[in-house]
Structure formats: C-alpha cells, structure tokens
Amino acid sequence: MSIELKNVTYTYSPGTAYEIHALKDICLTIPDGQFIGVIGHTGSGKSTLIQHLNALIRPTSGSVLYNGEDVWAENYNRKDLRSQVGLVFQYPEHQLFESDVLSDVCFGPMNQGLSREEAEKEAEKALRQVGFKEKNFHKSPFELSGGQKKRVAIAGVLAMNPRILILDEPTAGLDPKGRDEILDQIAELHSVRGITIILVSHSMEDVAKYVERLIVVNRGEIAFDDTPKEVFSHYRELEAMGLAAPQITYIMHALKEKGLNVDPGATTVPEACEDILRALREAGSPLLKGGPAK
C-alpha cells in the first residue's frame, strides 16, 4: 500500500496570461503507516499537492500511482480510491450539512453502499474514536462548538475506513486544549488503526511534536523531506521560505551561542528540558545548587 507521485507537474490556467506552475516535477513516495507533516507558506503549492493524492485534480504531466496502479488510467476506479484516501479540508465544519450528527457521519459509508444500519455502526465507531460524546449524537451539527464540529467532520471521513487520512490544518481556530486533544486523537488513530496520516499545518510546534517525517513545499517544489529534527536544523532557509522553526529551536541555538553546550536539534519542550538540565549539570552550573537533586 503506497502512494507514489512520479514527476508530477500541475499548471493552473495553462496557455493563458495567468499561467501558474503550482507543482513542478514532484517525485514523492508515501509508504503505508507513516505520520507525515506537510508545511509551506500560503500559495506554496501544498494544497494542490494533497489534492493529487486522492485524484481530486489531475496532474498536467507525470503520474500518480496508488499501490502501483496509475489512478488516471482509463478504467481505474477513482471513487474507490477516494474512500481509501480520505481528505479533511481546512474548515471541516463547512463540510457538515445533515440535520443531526449521526446522519452526517453516515453519509460517507452509505455512499459506499452500506445500509443505514451498517453505516450507523461505522459512524458510531468513528465518532467514539475522535472523542465525540454519545449524548450529542442526535444534536444538529450547527449547535456544536468549533472543536466538536471538527471532530464530526473528521469522523465523517473516518467512517469510510480510509487507509490514508489527509488533514488540511484541522486545528485552525481551536483553543490550545482543543488543538492538543484533536492531534492526540489523530496520533492515536495512527497507532491503533495503523492508518497513514498526512497532516498539513501552519504550526511548527505541532509538527515537531507529532510527525515522523516532514515535507516542506516551496514554490511548487519539495524543499525538504526528512525528520522534523533534520528539517528544522535548516531554520534560516525555512525563514527565507516564509516559515520558521519551533520556538524551542531558536532557544537552543541561542543557548549554544552563549556557550551552554546544548543540542540545538531539540524541537520539543520535554527534549529541550532534559537536554538543558544535562548541559547545566555538565557545566557544574550554580543554578542547580539549592534545588532538589536530580
């Protein structure tokens, strides 16, 4: 199970004065089971890129392979592909339309040919997996808070049992706790269901915390494709692309410059905390005296 992009180029409005090369000769393999982050500034081409992954748009040139098969071949079942590669758009709450939550989540599986009863089973399972409370199953989606709506929208895609789940900024506008809850649940789906997760995000802190592989899109090309730690070590180049590193990266570099022997590669708070404590101990820092010995 894998998605492969081979020399994919996509041009908006080809042959006109407004011609824009949104993607240029992209080669990319997404094997099964990875937790991948995609970052890039507005207009970098990342949304165009993810829409290729479930054949929502057709490359101007190059090919998209799913399990080795060309998804744009004449007899290829793209409808089936789209139920295996689920896409949750930015502002997923705008995707809700039914009169109650459960019916909304049933829409996908019923379209796949399940009866209402079978669909409800899948829907209930999906809603539970995103941490949505049963007492709200029959509420109107429009009565819910932002975080709850996002959960329902994610459940709607999840109920179709996708192998791959793509989320375009699922946490925009959520409070910090809501953001952590949704991302924790996505991480759990990844580990429990084993599905591939592709997370598009503007939060460097979030990708640093969750993903194992980070793809940076810039001007329609893949600028970096590596572990977050490796990618964020190029923070000066990321800044030139309109991005940044997590605040932690800047702290660690600043400490290193001032002579504290820390690992500038730390990208999360626990990593940084542990490493600074080690460096302070090694330096015999007076700041550690008086505190509880560790």
Binding site: G178, I248, V269, P270, C273, L287, G291, A293
Partner: peptide, 24 residues
C-alpha cells in the same frame, strides 16, 4: 491549563526547568 489554555513554549520550558530545580 485548567482553562484549556497554554503558555508560550519558552515559558513552559522555563517552568519545567524551574520544577526540575533550576534556579531561574
């Protein structure tokens, strides 16, 4: 955190370090 909020990463890091006995 009780109010579902957070602090900036640098503040959180400083707080964790202080809890671990660093005098800041």
């Amino acid at each position: 955190k009780k109010y579902r909020l957070d602090v900036p990463q640098v503040t959180l890091l400083a707080w964790e370090l202080k809890k671990s006995g660093v005098d800041i």
